[in-house]
């Protein structure tokens, strides 16, 4: 093995690691606000990537119908959940957010898609389609059990993953798709070539990490979101709208997921289950980051990415075995250290 291969492996590892890091950061974010171990994070990646790829070809992606359906179901569930507090204004507000908004997005897609907009405009449109699905999904699947244990929420999340992956197959088919790159610039660094695409991934990962770390630790609003996860009733008693907190976490998670997908789609072919596989690695990083630290999650993601790159070079057969075995010692360590906190209570 020479230094060029080494550099290639590192670059490959860092690029994948940055993607895992993005998803890991989103997983931490969702957990910090809702206590949900959000397995379906990767499905947003798939939805974002395939929506963008279809828009690139001038077609209307099937996700618009999904958006409409999610909005409608969420509307009904929202009204049912808040039936003791309903008035005309509230109903109007909910209808606006969950019925009118998706209708507008669908209409816009039908109008804009055939025009074959430039890649960045398609990216924005894809985001507009996928992002609202986050809060709708929260309302449909998680709000009715928001008080349940972490474990129950985890199993619910797995149910959501099964459904979303199945829906992905339904709307996109088993064929893989690729999207047009956002920029075609590339920068030779020694033997390596760094593309604008990978640079934007690095940038996005770093910005998300820094912004989320700041947001959840400094402004009162960020602390309020965290407080929702720590004690839901306590949060309501100080005037925090806990369902809003959940929706905010999910919209951010959906945006991060869809962006990750949109940035990956031009580099590799995306299938209906690709997102889940990438998401799982992000998930590992988030667990190593103890579902709490954004920087630690990103570092862990880079380690996972690089370990994977080297494993695929030296023992490509056992790449997955190695990566998934990696987290077991971390879990043991985390479990032991969290146990002491419980004892002090």
């Amino acid at each position: 093995m020479d230094s060029t291969i080494l550099l290639f492996l590192v670059q490959d590892g860092v690029t994948n690691g940055a993607l895992y890091g993005l998803l890991g950061v989103a997983t931490v974010l969702v957990f910090a606000v809702t206590r949900i171990i959000f397995v379906p994070q990767g499905e947003f990646v798939t939805y974002g990537a395939l929506t963008l790829a279809l828009l690139d070809t001038g077609r209307v992606p099937g996700t618009v119908w999904l958006l409409l359906g999610f909005g409608l179901v969420a509307f009904v569930i929202e009204l049912w959940m808040s039936r003791h507090e309903l008035d005309a204004r509230r109903i109007g507000k909910e209808a606006l957010a969950k019925i009118v908004l998706p209708c507008l997005i669908v209409a816009a897609t039908f109008w804009l898609a055939p025009m074959k907009l430039p890649p960045w405009a398609n990216l924005l449109l894809a985001l507009a389609i996928v992002a609202p699905m986050g809060p709708y999904l929260y309302t449909i699947a998680f709000r009715p059990v928001a008080e349940a244990s972490v474990l129950t929420l985890f199993i619910v999340a797995i149910g959501v993953h099964l459904s979303m992956q199945g829906l992905g197959l339904l709307f996109f088919g088993a064929e893989g798709l690729r999207a047009t790159p956002l920029s075609s610039t590339s920068l030779p660094v020694g033997p390596l070539v760094i593309t604008g695409q990978t640079l934007s991934i690095y940038a996005l990962t770093l910005v998300s990490m820094a912004a989320l770390t700041f947001f959840f630790n400094k402004p009162l609003f960020g602390k309020a979101l965290r407080a929702t996860a720590i004690n839901r009733l306590g949060a309501r008693l100080v005037g925090i709208r806990t369902s809003l907190s959940g929706s905010i976490a999910f919209v951010l998670a959906a945006i991060i997921g869809a962006l990750t997908g949109a940035l990956t789609a031009p580099m590799t072919t995306i299938y209906y289950d690709t997102g889940f596989i990438i998401g799982l690695k992000g998930f590992i990083a988030a667990i190593i980051g103890s579902l709490a630290s954004y920087p630690l999650t990103v570092v862990a993601a880079l380690v996972v990415g690089i370990a994977e790159a080297f494993a695929s070079f030296f023992a490509s057969q056992f790449k997955e075995v190695i990566v998934f075995t990696l987290i077991i010692p971390v879990l043991i360590w985390l479990s032991l250290s969290s146990h002491h906190v419980e004892e002090e209570e």
Partner: peptide, 27 residues
């Protein structure tokens, strides 16, 4: 390895070795 894990770490642990061993079977 698994039984001493507390709370949600336990199912996550089973998930991790479950996936790893599945890949082992198939490789």
């Amino acid at each position: 390895i698994t039984v001493p894990l507390s709370g949600h770490y336990l199912p996550l642990g089973t998930l991790a070795w479950g996936i790893a061993i599945f890949y082992l079977f198939s490789k």
